[in-house]
Every structure is written in structure tokens, then in C-alpha cells.
Design a binder for these strands. Structure first.
Length: 560
RNA sequence: GUCCCGGUAGCUCAGCUGGAUAGAGCAACAGCCUCCUAAGCUGUAGGUCGUGAGUUCAAAUCUCGCCCGGGACGCCA
């Protein structure tokens, strides 16, 4: 907890104490005290609506209640300078903000750690995201999922959770057979021979490339091979090639996973059978029409689901159950899946399956990412993996830029449909919001470089020698307040699974800093003491900005 | 038909555990570089918060109905 959070808490405590002391209500009747930062500066640094909330319990008018609360409120104890009652009964607190300068040495000392808290108490959380089938290039939807998932993980980590990032490789289903057949067709075509693509084949450019490469590397070696041998080889080769490419693409997008979990390994280790056995022992399955069904309707699903088809093979659902069972067995307190909106219908059955296995359905959380719609030349672009016409994540990054792409996806709430105007993103990339924040950082770095030349350099070690009481102008306080919010913003973003709160914060921090920059001269040769104090402040902003940008996977350039 | 998401400024979106005069970016308009980076700042203009009821001292926010847009409803994955 930093000084800001501590002071806020002490004000809340003091309000509660004042309510009790004034005899308005018993402790148990008092709701959680809400302390908010008013939009209007005229309404003070903090404000509470407690008087309105207590009107019913205390059976008195809110403004009267506010009067009593103020009478019993010990201002000086909690850095409050002045209190006013306003509007229907708001109590507005005007702070003696000098205490805020304590933040500066704290931030400088914390450095890269600033913003991190122990809020999550090291609880183990697993986040599974992207998990695209290895049958083609990653497209825009995956890019959004990757940006959101990675940022969420960073945020959870900073909020004190023990996070494991995981990618589930669907390397066992029918789609891999289709991959092999698609490669086979492309291989033959590359050799100038006729071969039709399978009905559910993958038409992506990447598959064509693989076919070409095979033809170059192996010539017609596989033309006369047995069908079985050829299939097995292409299957394995295709899978490896797709996975290598996928990993590389994600790494280039600054997304790294701790665990790459193979579906095939579940079969090899007998985990699929085992999960089915457990369900059977618990009486959760039944046989009908030659298939094995799970009673998901017992747990809120609209219909029961097939686990094993009448032909003896498993549905996609069955290994997925085994996989999630495995997740919980690894001791995660919380398992978060980030899924595309097209899979949302799958949620009730997965939760039902977990409940059927005896796990807490609430421990499985599914965050749904809405669709990305790409616009070009003012028209919707059809995105289809089947026809291979989708714009790939790689192309997007090349055109829009890595930082801008990460920022753009992170800044939207995951549950809104996203219209991505490619022309706009490309042609106006210099006006992208990410530059606004990066520019603030670069400006700070420029100031810091010059401070060294002037002999004003400030570091965490000598900040104690600086007279921070010189800080106190409105713009300076605005900046300090913003810096002080950071840890709490991270906690809220983590709790609400809302990565875009971080980009909102980044924007606010940049805005507050730019405004400060235009109003206040940091380096003043005539006034070394003041310059040093302001440099220390600016340094704190730099650290905060850099840390915030790192959370969303965006670089913090020193020059622009 | 059932379920999920969205509908807020010209455009793209925040705000949604109810709070004071609904915000930002882009676009528009008017100012600001002899001064630490003008990729910036300051100001102006721009709104029936899809719609109709309800709950409340107070609704963009909560409840219900309706309209519009997107998505999902397989012994596919």
C-alpha cells in the first residue's frame, strides 16, 4: 500500500468513526464508505456520499447528517485541510496535499517494481489464451486475444498473483488430418501435378508455402510413397511447421507462454480415458444411440453433450474436459480461459463438466473476446480461415507497427465488438494514441539527459537530499496524484479482468504530464533546488509510465 | 425460437458495485514555439446516453418489455 492508498483508507476510517461518534448509526448499519475523486476540482480532492446513504437509517436529511459527521471528523489527523457540504449532501474534502511528495522517493526506490502489490497474495492463477489450431496463420481475432491475454497476465502478476500462461495445442483432432491432406494437395500442386484440396482443407498461403518447401526439399520422393507413409510424414511435418511459425509470431508480438500443452499428450498419458472413467464412476454419463453422453443438463446446460461418438472416437469436448481437469489438479485456485465470442456457447457445458467432476464451477472463468471486424476502403473484409483470405497478425503488425497494434487491442474493452479500420490505422499511424504516451516518456528522457549536462542529475540514492517541499503547484500535485493512483489501477484492472483500464491510465498519466510540461519549466539554471525537486518528480513519472507501458507490452522509447 | 455481446458527440470508444454540469481520441474551429522535443498545450463547438415503462432522494449505470447490429446454438473443432 502506498501513501495515497493509506491516506484514503484513513479518511474512510475517520468518516466511519465520525458517523459512530455522532450517534447517527450503529457500526453494522454503516455501508462501505465510498470515497471518490470528484470530476470537478471545485468539489475537492475527495468526496463521499455517506450522508445520502445514511438518510434512511438515521431518519434525517442528508445535509444535516453531513453536518454531524463533519463535527466529529478529525481533519488534521488525515491531511484534510477543509471540508464542505455540497449539493444534495455530498461531503467534499480538500486536502493538504503536501504529504504526496513522500511518493517521490518511494517510486524512485521501487523503480521497475513500482505499481506492484501483494494484493493477490501469491494465489495461483492459470490463464489459457490464443490456443489457435495449428492449421494456419494467426488472424486478427487471435491478435486481439493475444494482446488482451498477455496484458491481463502482466496485470495479474503485478497485482501479486502467481500467473501461469498457457497455450493449448489442438494437435489431435480431425483438423490435423485436414492439415495433412491440405499439405499433400499443395505438395502435389507444387510439383505441377493435379491434386484437389480436401473439402475442409486449409487454403492459407502458409500451407502453399509448406507444400512448396516440401517439393523443393524432397522432390517427388513422396509421390510414390504409400499413402499412409506420406500422410504420417506430412501430418508431423505440417504440425511442426505450423507450431514453429505460431510460436515465432507470438514471440514477435511480445507474447510468451509458460506452458505449451499438447492435446495429444492427454491421449498418450491416458488422461482422456481416465477423465471419462471418473465421470462414469460419479454416475454423470450414460449410453444412448451408441454414444456416451454427459449429463450437463444437471448443471445448467440446455442439453446433454456427447463425449464419445458412436464411431468410437471422442468429441472435442472430451479431451478438453480432461485438460481442464488436469488444470485444477495442478493446484490453480483460478483458471481463466480467454475465448473468442464464437465459442461462448461452449461455456455452460464446460462449467457443467467441471461441476460434474466435483470442482467449483466458479473457479473456472471464461473471458469472452468479441469479434474483430476489419474495414478496408470503407468496406467490411470477410475473414475466413477456410479461404485463406484473412489478414494475418503478421501482416497487421507489419502495416500498423508492433507497439500500436498491442496498444490498440489492449485499449478496447474485451467485450465490445471492434471495428478495425485498416486504412486509418496505416495512414494515420502517427496519430495513434500510443504515440501520445510514448512521446511523454521520450520528453521526460530528454529532460533527464539535459539535467545531467547541467549537473542536476537526480537518482534514487540522493533524493533524500532534495527539498521536496518545493513541490506544491497545482500542476505538480496533479501529476503526483496520478502517479500515486498506479498501484490501485493495477489492482482494479486485475480484479475486473479489464486490461483496457491500464491504457486508460496511461493516457491520463501522459495527459497530466504534458499539461504539467507546458505549464512548468523543469530545468531552471537560476534555481537549482527547485529544478532538482521537479526532476525527482519527473523521474517518478518516467518510472510509472515505463512500468505501465510494459504491462501492455509497449516499448518506452527514450527518443522520438 | 433460445442464449451471449454491443447500441453514449460526425467517426472510434471510455464511463456501468447508481451520485453533483456525461468524458477522451480523431475530425472541425480559434489561439500558443527568442523558452527543457508543437507526435505537445490552451480554449470553442458538438449529446432525446437505441426506445418505452419501473425502482430510487438521485438512472448512461439497476429491473422488465421492445427495436437495431454482431455472434452462438453439431455424435465439427
Amino acid at each position: 500500500m502506498n501513501i495515497v492508498q493509506a491516506v484514503e483508507q484513513s479518511i474512510k476510517d475517520e468518516i466511519k468513526q465520525a458517523v459512530i461518534a455522532s450517534g447517527l448509526a450503529e457500526e453494522a448499519q454503516i455501508p462501505d464508505v465510498v470515497l471518490e475523486v470528484p470530476k470537478e476540482k471545485a468539489h475537492g480532492d475527495y468526496s463521499t456520499n455517506i450522508a445520502m446513504q445514511l438518510a434512511r437509517v438515521a431518519k434525517r436529511a442528508p445535509r444535516q447528517i453531513a453536518e454531524s459527521v463533519i463535527e466529529h471528523f478529525a481533519k488534521e489527523k488525515v491531511h484534510v485541510e477543509k471540508i464542505e457540504i455540497a449539493g444534495p449532501g455530498f461531503i467534499n474534502f480538500f486536502m493538504d496535499n503536501s504529504y504526496l511528495t513522500e511518493l517521490i522517493p518511494n517510486v524512485l526506490k521501487a523503480g521497475e517494481e513500482y505499481g506492484r502489490t501483494e494484493y493477490g497474495k501469491g494465489e495461483k492463477i492459470q490463464v489459457e489464451f490464443v490456443s489457435a489450431n495449428p492449421t494456419g496463420d494467426l488472424h486478427l481475432g487471435h491478435a486481439r486475444g493475444a494482446a488482451v491475454g498477455d496484458t491481463l497476465c502482466n496485470v495479474l502478476d503485478a497485482a501479486g498473483y502467481d500467473v501461469t500462461r498457457e497455450y493449448y495445442i489442438n494437435d489431435a483432432g480431425n483438423q490435423i488430418n485436414n492439415l495433412a491432406y491440405s499439405i499433400e494437395a499443395r505438395y502435389f500442386q507444387a510439383l505441377g501435378m493435379d491434386k484437389e484440396m480436401p473439402e475442409d482443407g486449409y487454403h492459407g498461403q502458409d500451407i502453399i508455402e509448406i507444400g512448396k518447401k516440401l517439393a523443393e526439399e524432397y522432390g517427388d520422393k513422396f509421390v510414390n510413397a504409400s499413402e499412409e507413409e506420406r500422410f504420417e510424414f506430412f501430418r508431423k511435418y505440417g504440425l511442426d511447421a505450423e507450431m514453429d511459425k505460431l510460436k515465432k509470431d507470438l514471440e514477435n508480438f511480445r507474447v510468451k507462454f509458460d506452458v505449451w500443452f499438447s492435446e495429444t499428450s492427454l491421449y498418450e498419458d491416458g488422461k482422456v480415458e481416465e477423465a471419462l472413467e471418473v465421470l462414469r464412476e460419479k454416475g454423470q454419463v450414460y449410453d444412448q444411440d451408441g454414444a456416451i453422453w454427459l449429463r450437463t443438463t444437471d448443471y445448467g446446460d440446455d442439453k446433454d453433450r456427447v463425449l464419445r461418438k458412436s464411431d468410437g472416437s471422442y468429441t472435442y469436448f472430451m479431451p478438453d474436459i480432461a485438460y481442464h481437469k488436469n488444470k485444477f489438479e495442478r493446484g490453480f485456485a483460478k483458471v481463466i480461459n480467454i475465448w473468442g465470442a464464437d465459442h461462448h456457447g461452449y461455456i455452460p457445458r464446460m462449467k457443467a463438466a467441471m461441476e460434474a467432476l466435483g470442482f467449483d464451477r466458479e473457479a473456472l472463468e471464461v473471458e469472452v473476446i468479441q469479434m474483430v471486424q476489419l474495414y478496408k476502403d470503407g468496406e467490411k473484409m470477410k475473414m475466413s480461415k477456410r479461404t485463406g483470405k484473412a489478414v494475418t497478425m503478421r501482416e497487421l503488425i507489419e502495416e500498423v507497427g508492433l507497439d500500436a497494434t498491442r496498444y490498440f487491442f489492449a485499449m478496447r474493452s474485451p467485450d465490445t465488438h471492434l471495428d478495425f479500420d485498416l486504412d486509418l490505422a496505416v495512414s494515420q499511424s502517427n496519430e495513434n494514441p500510443v504515440y501520445y504516451a510514448q512521446y511523454a516518456h521520450a520528453r521526460i528522457c530528454s529532460i533527464l539527459r539535459q539535467s545531467e549536462e547541467l549537473g542536476f542529475a537526480v537518482s534514487a540514492d540522493d533524493v533524500a537530499a532534495i527539498d521536496l517541499s518545493l513541490i506544491g503547484e497545482e500542476k505538480e500535485i496533479d501529476v503526483l496524484k496520478r502517479v500515486g493512483e498506479f498501484p490501485q489501477v493495477i489492482v482494479e484492472a486485475a480484479e475486473k479482468r479489464a486490461p483496457h483500464r491500464i491504457t486508460n491510465y496511461i493516457h491520463d498519466l501522459a495527459s497530466t504530464f504534458h499539461s504539467f510540461y507546458n505549464a512548468v519549466k523543469v530545468l531552471d539554471q537560476e534555481n537549482a533546488e527547485l529544478s532538482k525537486a521537479r526532476l525527482a518528480l519527473v523521474k517518478a513519472v518516467q518510472i510509472t509510465m515505463k512500468n505501465a507501458l510494459r504491462l501492455v507490452g509497449v516499448s518506452a522509447p527514450e527518443r522520438m
